[in-house]
Structures are given as structure tokens and as C-alpha cells.
């Protein structure tokens, strides 16, 4: 029956040439999109670097200042202090959140809510986070314009990136491997520390780099939480404003003086170059990760040996050799 159907009707095979034409058109569109993106990217880089590279000098990089006089050092250091503070607030909760999301036993409602909240968090406009940071952190919790307030405002934004990218790299680990660890008597902590984290280090690193490069370019929430400091570096963690590069860009370009414009261009140049370097590192994370592991693995092994495992050298806690004492 099937046979007669198949042979009874004429089949019109698609012509090869039409597929070739479609392929060519698709390829052309792809090239056009790529060319368009490259053109935009290159013109941004060229424009910023042309404006910045001509005006840059050592004095500007090594002195404190504001947009009308002095240099950018307070902005350069302040930016990394704020981002570092943001990382401090987001890395640990982000990684723990990812571990929770990955563990099979997690409550589905809680993990669903966590995913939803982090998705919403990534789309909250930074000016809104800034406003919230000002009203709650700066005023209500009385932190003043400060590293802690600015760091928290950045951390809130960095957390979802770190958490989701870490979770993604956990998900790449074979689930049978995780189940096998449980089958050998591992508990949740064992699975996290011995199976998940060691294999996800490259992923966590790329989450850190991406969130750092995004945070370094933020302005709005810092205007509300860190204000600006032209006198130098913040004197403490709270109640002491912080300078940052995006402020020089934002404020400098509004000033009538050519000097302010120069500072704005140089700040923008430093930002895009650092961000590009970070993105490159995270792209080639396997290479960087291998390097880091080579450096840190021996250190980790030593820490493990000294603090965690430290087996008694002779026999087993008063039992004769060959017997085991099962852990309770």
C-alpha cells in the first residue's frame, strides 16, 4: 500500500539551484549585519581614541582632579574600588544562589522565584536602582555617599550575571556524574565543593569578568550613591564620596572647556580599553582558567592537606591497620 503510493504519484524534487541562491542570500545578509556592527564599533573606538590618545599625559593619569582641573587618578582608582566592592557583595551570594538552583532537591517554587527575580533585576533601569540606593542606603541606612552604598548598588546589578553564568556552567556538568557522587555517599556540600565548583571555575571567572565590565561602565546608580569626590580617594567605607571615570565622561562633556572634554575622552578611552580586555579574557577563559588553575591548584592542594584532610599518619584512631571507622 505504501509502496504503490510512493510510486504512483510524481514527486517534484526541489531544484538544487534554488537552494544555492537562498544560501547565497543568507550569507550576504550575514555579511551585511557583521559589516554594519563592525563599522559602528570601529567608529566608536576610532572617535574615542582619537579624542583621548592625543590629550593623554602622565600628569592626567597620576593626579587627582575634577572635570575643570587636575587629573583622573581618583576616577581610575575609584572605579575599581567601587567595582571591587560590588563584586564583594555579589560573588558569594551569586555562586551560592547558583549552587542552590542546580541542586536537584531544591524547592522548585523557590528556585523558580529566584530565576524570575534575577531576570527582573537585570532589566531594572540603573537610574531606578540609583534612586532606590539613594533613598534606602544613603539616607535610610545612613551610609552617606560612599563606597559601600555605591558598591551595593553595583552589586545588585552584578549578582544576576554572576549567578546565571555560574548556573549555566554547572548545568554543563553531566548529571550522571552528580548522581554518581551522591551514590557514593556525598552530601550536598560535598557535591558542591568537589564536583560542581572545581569544574565551574572557568565559568565563574567569565561571569565575574562580564559583570565587572558591565559595572565599570555604569553611571546612573553611582551618581545617587557615590556622588563624586574631586579631592582624592574616599577616606573610609561610609560617608565619603567616591570618584569614578564615568562621572568624568558624563560631566566633562557638559562643560564648556576643552580641558573637560579631553578628560571625558580619556576616561572613555580607559573604560572601553579595559572593558575590551576583560571581554577578551572571558572569551578565552579556558586559556586564562588553565593558567589560574596552574597557579592556584597547588595552593588549593596545600590548603586542603593542611586544614581539611590532615590524616593521622599511623593507623586509624586507635584501631588496627586495615579497619575503617565509618563516619557517623
Amino acid at each position: 500500500m505504501i509502496n504503490s503510493d510512493m510510486h504512483g504519484s510524481e514527486i517534484k524534487w526541489k531544484r538544487h539551484s534554488s537552494r544555492k541562491a537562498k544560501d547565497a542570500a543568507a550569507r550576504l545578509l550575514g555579511y551585511l549585519a557583521l559589516g554594519f556592527m563592525l563599522a559602528i564599533l570601529i567608529s566608536i573606538f576610532a572617535y574615542i581614541i582619537k579624542g583621548g590618545a592625543g590629550a593623554i599625559n602622565w600628569n592626567i593619569l597620576s593626579t587627582y582632579g575634577n572635570t575643570s582641573e587636575g587629573g583622573l587618578l581618583n576616577g581610575i582608582i575609584g572605579t575599581w574600588e567601587l567595582v571591587g566592592m560590588g563584586l564583594l557583595f555579589s560573588l558569594i551570594p551569586g555562586v551560592f544562589g547558583a549552587i542552590y538552583l542546580t541542586q536537584a532537591v531544591s524547592n522548585r517554587h523557590i528556585s523558580g522565584a529566584m530565576r524570575l527575580f534575577t531576570d527582573i533585576l537585570t532589566s531594572v533601569p540603573s537610574i531606578v536602582i540609583g534612586l532606590f540606593g539613594y533613598l534606602v542606603l544613603v539616607i535610610r541606612f545612613n551610609l552617606g555617599y560612599s563606597l559601600v552604598a555605591g558598591g551595593l548598588a553595583l552589586g545588585v546589578m552584578m549578582l544576576p550575571y554572576i549567578m546565571r553564568i555560574t548556573e549555566m556552567s554547572f548545568r554543563n556538568i553531566q548529571s550522571e556524574q552528580i548522581m554518581n557522587a551522591y551514590a557514593l555517599g556525598a552530601d550536598h556540600v560535598n557535591v558542591a565543593t568537589r564536583i560542581l565548583l572545581p569544574q565551574a571555575s572557568a565559568g565563574i571567572l567569565s561571569g565575574i569578568l562580564l559583570s565587572v565590565s558591565i559595572a565599570a561602565g555604569e553611571t546612573a546608580q553611582l551618581l545617587y550613591t557615590a556622588s563624586f569626590n574631586s579631592a582624592g580617594l574616599p577616606s573610609g567605607l561610609t560617608h565619603s564620596p567616591v570618584g569614578y571615570l564615568t562621572y568624568f565622561v558624563w560631566n566633562g562633556i557638559n562643560q564648556p572647556s576643552a580641558y573637560a572634554h579631553n578628560l571625558a575622552f580619556i576616561s572613555a578611552m580607559i573604560l572601553i580599553i579595559s572593558v575590551t580586555v576583560l571581554i577578551f579574557i572571558s572569551k578565552y577563559e579556558d586559556v586564562v582558567g588553565r593558567f589560574l588553575r596552574r597557579v592556584f591548584a597547588p595552593l588549593g592542594a596545600v590548603i586542603n592537606r593542611v586544614f581539611i584532610e590532615s590524616p593521622p599518619e599511623q593507623g586509624v584512631k586507635g584501631k588496627s591497620k586495615g579497619e575503617k571507622e565509618w563516619k557517623k
Binding site: Q177, A181, L184, A186, N190, P198, E309, E325, W326
Partner: peptide, 22 residues
């Protein structure tokens, strides 16, 4: 599905977790 560690550590994995042995 060996764990990404040495042969020795793979075999020792469960015993390390569950018993104290020299």
C-alpha cells in the same frame, strides 16, 4: 563517568567522604 580528577582520587572518593582512614 569518572570525576575530573586523578585515578587515585576517583577510587578514593567515596571512602574519603565516608571514613577516616590513614
Amino acid at each position: 563517568n569518572p570525576f575530573p580528577m586523578s585515578i587515585y582520587d576517583n577510587v578514593a572518593f567515596g571512602l574519603k567522604l565516608q571514613a577516616k582512614v590513614s
